[in-house]
Deep mutational scan, measured.
Amino acid sequence: RADKQHVLDMLFSAFEKHQYYNLKDLVDITKQPVVYLKEILKEIGVQNVKGIHKNTWELKPEYR
């Protein structure tokens, strides 16, 4: 399990490339446990629960 700041850096870097990611792809990118990753994502992102981007994560507007 990596340092939180290191995980945040990896996530922000990923979100610079694409606006939406599913959790599986973010786990592959960060190599972090799902529960730990979700904890961090809830602080900086929102999970889309409907629409064409259903079940994906994106950054909260203040982090874009």
Rank of each mutant, 00 (worst) to 15 (best):
R64Y: 06
H6Y: 07
D25A: 10
T30S: 04
G51R: 04
Y20Q: 11
Q32K: 09
L59R: 02
Q5A: 10
V49S: 13
V7H: 03
K60A: 08
D9A: 08
Q32H: 06
K54Y: 06
L59V: 05
I52Y: 11
Q47T: 08
K17S: 06
Q32E: 08
Y36D: 07
K4W: 06
N22K: 10
K24F: 09
Y20N: 06
E43A: 04
V27W: 03
R1W: 07
E58Y: 07
K50H: 15
E62F: 04
V49F: 06
N22I: 05
F12I: 06
Y63S: 06
L59M: 08
K4L: 05
V7P: 01
Y63K: 07
G51L: 02
A14W: 10
Q47C: 13
R64A: 15
H53V: 07
M10I: 10
L37P: 01
M10L: 12
L23T: 07
V35S: 12
P61S: 14
K54N: 11
E39T: 10
V35G: 15
H18T: 07
Y63H: 13
L23P: 01
L8H: 09
L26G: 01
Y63L: 10
Y36H: 12
L26I: 03
H6N: 11
R64L: 12
K60F: 01
P33L: 01
F15C: 02
V46P: 00
G45Q: 01
Y63N: 12
M10K: 08
A2R: 15
L23H: 00
H53N: 14
H18G: 09
A14G: 01
D9Y: 06
Q19W: 05
V34T: 12
L23M: 09
I44Y: 05
N55Y: 09
E58D: 03
G45E: 01
H18P: 01
L41E: 00
H53K: 13
L8I: 14
H18R: 14
V49I: 13
E16D: 11
K42E: 12
N22C: 11
E39Y: 06
P61F: 04
D9R: 13
L8W: 06
E43V: 06
G51Y: 01
K42L: 12
H53S: 10
L37D: 00
F12G: 05
D28W: 05
L37M: 05
H18F: 03
E62D: 08
